[in-house]
């Protein structure tokens, strides 16, 4: 597990200050989408070995939701961005 996370608001922090909130690459389906699409969105998760985008919440710090891109095998952290900024960029 990546042990040091560079929070864009608070600086370098130990992972104990964060709470992991799951896959950040999921996009919520249309309300009218099929049951299969909703089932996949709610329940089905991949467990990749390698690069992974995840929501981490800095619960003991600024309490912001962050998007952490990390490697689940080498523990390398590629980027940490604020969740709101990432969502704005994606036009959501």
């Amino acid at each position: 597990m990546a042990s040091l996370i560079h929070c864009p608001h608070c600086g370098v922090r130990p992972k104990e200050e964060f709470s992991i909130r799951g896959d950040a690459s999921l996009v919520r389906p249309d309300p009218e989408a099929s049951d299969e699409a909703w089932h996949d969105y709610v329940h089905i998760r991949s467990n990749p070995r390698g690069r992974y985008r995840e929501h981490w919440q800095h619960v003991a710090g600024c309490r912001r939701w962050l998007v952490v891109e990390r490697d689940t095998f080498t523990h390398e952290v590629f980027s940490v961005t604020d969740g709101a900024a990432t969502a704005r960029e994606a036009g959501r």
Binding site: C10, G11, E17, V59, A60, G61, C62, R63
Partner: peptide, 10 residues
């Protein structure tokens, strides 16, 4: 100043 974890207390 900043919010940090001290032991298990924020």
């Amino acid at each position: 100043s900043s919010n940090v974890l001290c032991g298990h207390i924020s």
